[in-house]
Design a protein around this nucleic acid. Structure first.
Lengths: 330, 330
DNA sequence: TTTTTGTGTCAAAACGATTTGACAAAATTT
DNA sequence: AAATTTTGTCAAATCGTTTTGACACAAAAA
């Protein structure tokens, strides 16, 4: 491996001169500069990143912590993050969720090992704070799309507003009897959306069933179960707001198999704007989350903290965007 | 930041002794060991990863290069990779596709900068070799799910076999007139599947249309276009093999809107086993790719090269698995 | 008892860059 | 012409580990 002294020798200068040519910390005369550049070219010299990291104290690596990388969400966030950090010379290192969850000691060690200049935590399922207590408070850290407690800066979605807008949309489209199929009840996001929807429904004159706490898993079967429960036990709804698009699809198929027409007899709104909601036989009205944007903002704040030691605003709130499709075209 | 000398001082030993306690390269007497351990605990000492990397020449980081991280494929591969490398103390660093594609110099610099101990290249769209010519041949590198030329070790899918099995499945289910909607023609995978399907069709007695080279984009609209073309111009098919599930869905919807029943009048097989193929109104017969497995194997080979300098087998071939669903239940 | 072997520890030399104090030589100001 | 400033370069110190040759001391073998 060719190193800086090799370059210096070939160019007939000292290593420090090579370094100055590379980093521009001191002026170098043009002829010397050229000789050094030539030597670099000739030897194909690449500075050793680890040596640099050691001297500077910065690794140029930002950690990305997600409980489940399979979740498509993470990816759009990642793209947003990368759009910011890659041009600045940073790279993204993936810290697997399980690793993060299972081993406190290692997590702390990792954050403290200087391998990471900072980290972004995205969409964790757990609300368990314990791990983070071990991370030193000055370590640059930000969470995206979920709230990990009052001390950690976060980029979040206005879920209350999303719920409210769903109700508003139903009302404007002429639906009148609200129903609700939410995800697992331990999620703050779910609760906020539910509250927003219910208060919105009240505000816009939709009827609300007494029993408004159907909670199901975030998948197709959850939607099936939710819609069955809604039709069999709650009854008399024509406007169903679902926690996500998988649930919406299950709900729609169940309604159809019960002889109901969507949206004529019953309207459905999903959440997340999954790819299939756009080409499902009945295309699905849904909320798009600005995940790319969230990643971008998170990355900008993080960089600003790492590079300039600026504090990250404790909370940044973005809005989801309603995308109207057939499932609510009354 | 507390360092090894601080620990040494507190424990009343030399830094090398602390190092030996940590790494076990030399025997240390039990009482000394205990004192050192105690000091480490007390000071909350975490070794500096960069200093370590510099000394050892290994960063403990493996690069993951994917053209499009949004693509769900990458994620299952990543999970497989992680299942192997995380227990061994490695971490995964994303190298964004665009970065890889656009800037030759940087790519090379990156591979050579010792920031990465090795890299996995997954599912690139381009067939462009140029970037890799700049990577030194001894750099541990392996590609997953695509072939980047004769010199790079690869884990690939037996696409020919997949095509062949699709034909076999159609024949066994009583379909008789084969049709084909493939992805963009520049993909080797597409071509292999096509050849396998056509030869399989011949072998199992399916009729093959003269015009068997419909190529469309890999999405829903591609499927719509493909099926229209098939019905309008090729005609007389009852068994359509699609390049992926998005195309299959578009094809199915188009067939249905033309008054055909799936699978009674026309059977459809997709590829990739996307989540929605399992709950689409007509569930879709598809091929599952062993992506997790591929990632796992790639990671094992890579580690073996990084740690033990064992050469990576130039080619490892895995098979896809047919999952039968309603779209071919004749 | 003397020699050999084995244990446990240390001091010093890497690893490969960046930073800083020093100092000629050249350019500018008095 | 002397004093001052600027410019360009270098030598040496530093970042925080790991590794290795040396050595003291204890235990075992001669």
């Amino acid at each position: 491996m060719v190193k800086i002294t090799d370059v210096a020798k070939l160019a007939g200068v000292s290593p420090s001169t090579v370094s100055h040519v590379l980093n521009g910390k001191r002026p170098i005369s043009e002829p010397t500069r050229q000789r050094v550049l030539q030597a670099i070219e000739e030897l194909n010299y690449i500075p050793n990143a680890n040596a640099r990291a050691m001297k500077s104290g910065l690794s140029g690596i930002i950690g990305f912590i997600a409980t489940d990388i399979t979740e498509l969400f993470s990816n759009r966030i990642i793209q947003g993050v990368e759009s910011v950090i890659v041009p600045s010379g940073f790279h993204l290192l993936f810290v697997s969720g399980t690793e993060f969850k299972t081993n406190l000691g290692d997590t702390m060690a990792f954050m403290n090992s200087r391998k990471l200049d900072g980290a972004i935590i995205a969409q964790s399922i757990t609300q368990d704070h314990r791990n983070l207590e071990f991370v030193p408070p000055e370590f640059p850290l930000i969470t995206v799309n979920f709230d990990f407690g009052p001390h950690l800066p976060r980029i979040i979605l206005d879920n209350y507003k999303g719920g409210w807008e769903a109700a508003e949309h139903f009302a404007r489209k002429g639906f009148s009897r609200a129903g609700l199929i939410m995800g697992p009840s331990n999620r703050i996001a779910s609760n906020d959306r539910q509250t927003g929807f219910l208060e919105g429904a009240k505000n816009f004159g939709l009827t609300i069933p007494q029993r408004n706490f159907i909670h199901v898993p975030f998948d197709f079967q959850g939607g099936v179960k939710g819609m069955e429960e809604l039709l069999d036990e709650v009854g008399n709804v024509d406007a169903v707001f679902c926690a996500n698009d998988y649930i919406a699809v299950g709900a729609i198929q169940t309604a159809i198999s019960r002889g109901l027409r969507v949206p004529e007899d019953i309207g459905v709104i999903g959440f997340d704007n999954r790819d299939f909601s756009e080409f499902w036989p009945t295309t699905i009205t849904s909320f798009d989350q600005p995940l790319y944007e969230m990643g971008k903002i998170a990355a900008q704040y993080l960089e600003d903290k790492i590079l300039n030691h600026h504090e990250i605003p404790i909370q940044t709130v973005l809005s989801s965007r309603l995308i109207e499709r057939e499932s609510t075209r009354h």
